[in-house]
Nucleic acid binder design. Structure first.
Length: 287
DNA sequence: GAGAGTGTTGTAAC
DNA sequence: GGTTACAACACTCT
C-alpha cells in the first residue's frame, strides 16, 4: 500500500537509474495500465526521462526536450516499478540479484527497454494503478487537486486549522482526503493519530489547535522518517529492486491489534472501522 | 468453494 | 463544497 514515503522511495531510487536514457522499446502487456492508450509506445519510444517529480502519491515523469509530454503514474495499492540493469541484476546492482523474482511475470503490465539494455517493469496485480501519457495541461490539472503535504516545510498550519474546523467527518476521513492533505494513507494516518494522541473517530472540527498542530507535525515527522528507511512494506510494497521497505519495524499501531499499547502499556491496541477502513488505535492513550 | 475483506481514488449523487 | 457510496480489480483469508 504505497503512501507518500513509498512513492518518494521509488522516485529517489528510479531517477538516477533511468535519467537521460533513451527508451528503445516499449511493450504494453495490459493496455488498461496505460489508460487504454493505443499511442503509448509510439509517443514514448526514443524519448529520454529528464526528471521525476512527485506530488502526493503521484509520480510525474518529464522528458528531455519535450515540453508537452509527461507520464503520470499512480501505484494505487499494488503497483510496482522494478528496474533491471544491463547485467540483469534487479535493482541495478544496489541490491543482490533476486533469484526469487523472474521478470516479466503475470502481473507485469508494461516493459520499458532502454538503449543501454536495462529494463524498467511496471507490475500491478490489481490493475488499479496506471502509467499514463499526459500534456502539460493535464499535469497542471492533476497537481491542482492536491492539498498540502505534511512533510513540507512550508505547510500552512493556520489554513489547515481553519479548514479542519469546517469538517464534520472523522479526523481520519479528513486526513485521508488527498485534496485536503496530500500523502497520508491508511497506515500513516493511524500512526500519526497515535503519535498525536487523537482518536481516529474524533470529529475533525472538535480538535483543538494544539491537537491539529500535533497531528500534522506527527504525520510529517513519521513520513520523513519512513522515507529515510525506504518506506513501509505492509502487504505489497516493494522498492525498485524488489526489496521490502524497512520502516515496518517502526510501526506502533498499524497491524498491532491485540498487542499491548507500546506507550501506556495498559490496554491492547484496538482494531475498528473508521472512514470505511481498518483502523488501529489505543483506546487509553488517544483522546 | 462461496463470500467477505483488503485499500486508493474518481465519479456520481445527495 | 462537503460528504457518502460505489466501482474499478485480483488476490487472501474465513
Amino acid at each position: 500500500m504505497p503512501e507518500l514515503p513509498e512513492v518518494e522511495t521509488v522516485r529517489l531510487q528510479l531517477l538516477p537509474k533511468i535519467k537521460g536514457k533513451p527508451i528503445r522499446k516499449i511493450k504494453v502487456l495490459h493496455p488498461k495500465a496505460t489508460g487504454n492508450d493505443a499511442t503509448f509506445s509510439k509517443k514514448l519510444t526514443g524519448k529520454a526521462v529528464a526528471n521525476i517529480e512527485r506530488i502526493g502519491k503521484l509520480l510525474i515523469f518529464s522528458f528531455t526536450g519535450q515540453h508537452n509530454l509527461f507520464l503520470l503514474s499512480h501505484l494505487r495499492m499494488t503497483g510496482q516499478f522494478f528496474y533491471v540493469d544491463e547485467k540483469g541484476s534487479i535493482g541495478g546492482g544496489h541490491s543482490m540479484t533476486r533469484e526469487d523474482i523472474t521478470l516479466p511475470h503475470k502481473h507485469t503490465r508494461i516493459v520499458f527497454s532502454f538503449t543501454d539494455k536495462s529494463t524498467l517493469y511496471f507490475n500491478d496485480m490489481r490493475l488499479f494503478g496506471y502509467v499514463k501519457i499526459a500534456s502539460a495541461a493535464d499535469v497542471a490539472l492533476a497537481k491542482s487537486k492536491f492539498g498540502q503535504e505534511p512533510i513540507s516545510e512550508r505547510f500552512d498550519i493556520v489554513t489547515f486549522i481553519e479548514k479542519l474546523a469546517k469538517r464534520n467527518t472523522s479526523i481520519k476521513a479528513a486526513l485521508l482526503d488527498q485534496s485536503f492533505v496530500a500523502g497520508l494513507g491508511n497506515i500513516y494516518v493511524d500512526e500519526a493519530l497515535f503519535a498525536a494522541k487523537v482518536r481516529p473517530d474524533r470529529i475533525a472540527s472538535t480538535l483543538t489547535k494544539t491537537e491539529a498542530r500535533s497531528v500534522i507535525a506527527a504525520g510529517g515527522k513519521i513520513m520523513r522518517h519512513a522515507i529515510t528507511f525506504g518506506g513501509t512494506t505492509f502487504q505489497h510494497f516493494k522498492d525498485t529492486g524488489g526489496e521490502n521497505g524497512n520502516y515496518t519495524d517502526y510501526l506502533k499501531v498499524f497491524g498491532k491489534q491485540k498487542t499491548l499499547c507500546p506507550r501506556c502499556q495498559k490496554v491492547q491496541i484496538q482494531k475498528t472501522r473508521v472512514a470505511g477502513r481498518g483502523t488501529h488505535f489505543c483506546p487509553n492513550c488517544q483522546k
